[in-house]
Design a protein around this nucleic acid. Structure first.
Length: 290
DNA sequence: ATCGGCATTTGTT
DNA sequence: AACAAATGCCGAT
């Protein structure tokens, strides 16, 4: 399997900014006890505070101060507090495909059970490509029906990321084709290109349970969050919160299916398949878009 | 730190 | 194919 190693860096300036942001988040959460000041952090990164300031505002649309505030537990709790409508309408049936106002990046989704996938999947081709994103390198996977996978990788981890994704659909044929995936990446990570007129087509491939959970995630608007237990309740299995967590963790189209907006009941960021730091980064970034 | 709960996966017969 | 065991972005004690 050929995994490209050269990733273009000139599509979006955010691509390189993320590296800085990631380090800041890591420092902040690792030494949260002694609350390192912005100056301390800047010094440790061998950058001037002004430079850091610039990177943040460019990356998040948020001052460092506002950004820092956005990745705290407090903020997470605030996201949870806003009571929303149920995440899943009772009328939505498993496997039903349809349009909808899902996410703020509008998407239409099509669900495919493993059975359908198998029937069709043996001969199906998945085209993939690596692209810079505000959250590190993104691995985009598409079928002729639409976006099927979105993963992340820190520098040097592209291969592992690819294996992780490819392992989910072992029977597919994989073709490196970043020309085919580039416009997906460009659109997904640019809020200015999110519009209802041309929703993004995505293909959800998973068990009934997983698809119900992922549909619930799609209904969480930008700037809000929910909990695993609430999702469990909304899909009619109030005691299955842990199973919900597992399903959320298997979400193949991260970011687009906003699994980062699922938090623990107390607002903790419990976990993220592509790393907790990234979950914080995405939530912080979104705080600047709301 | 532990344990109940539950979908899925992985390892055994 | 059936079953047991392990695992995971939970949640409560």
């Amino acid at each position: 399997m050929n995994v490209v190693t050269s990733i273009p860096t000139d599509i979006t300036p955010d691509g390189t900014d993320y590296d800085t942001v990631r380090h800041v988040i890591e420092m902040l959460t690792e030494d949260y006890r002694d609350q390192p000041s912005l100056e301390t952090i800047a010094r440790r990164l061998r950058q001037s505070p002004t430079q850091l300031q610039k990177v943040f505002t460019r990356w998040a649309g948020l001052s460092p101060k506002a950004f820092l505030q956005a990745v705290t537990l407090d903020h997470a709790k605030r996201l949870l507090r806003q009571e929303g409508m149920p995440l899943l309408e009772a009328s939505i049936e498993v496997g039903l495909s349809g349009p909808g106002r899902l996410h703020d990046l509008f998407v239409t989704h099509e669900a495919m059970s493993p059975g359908e996938w198998k029937a069709r999947g043996g001969g199906l081709t998945i085209r993939y490509g690596f692209h810079p994103s505000p959250f590190g390198t993104a691995l985009v996977m598409v079928t002729d029906r639409g976006l099927a996978g979105l993963a992340f990788a820190d520098a040097g981890e592209e291969r592992a990321s690819f294996e992780d994704m490819a392992g989910r659909w072992p029977n597919a044929t994989y073709l490196e084709d970043s020309a085919a995936t580039a416009h997906y990446a460009a659109r997904i990570f640019n809020p200015e290109r999110w519009c209802a007129e041309e929703p993004l087509n995505i293909v959800l491939i998973g068990s009934d349970f997983q698809i119900r959970v992922w549909q619930a995630l799609l209904n969480i608007p930008l700037g809000k969050a929910t909990t695993y237990s609430k999702i469990a309740g909304d899909i009619g299995q109030p005691t299955a919160s842990r199973a919900v967590g597992a399903a959320v963790g298997r979400n193949p189209i991260s970011f687009v299916v906003p699994c980062h907006r699922a938090l623990g009941k107390g607002g903790e960021l419990t976990g993220y398949h592509w790393g907790l730091t990234r979950k914080r980064a995405i939530l912080g970034w979104e705080a600047g878009k709301g």
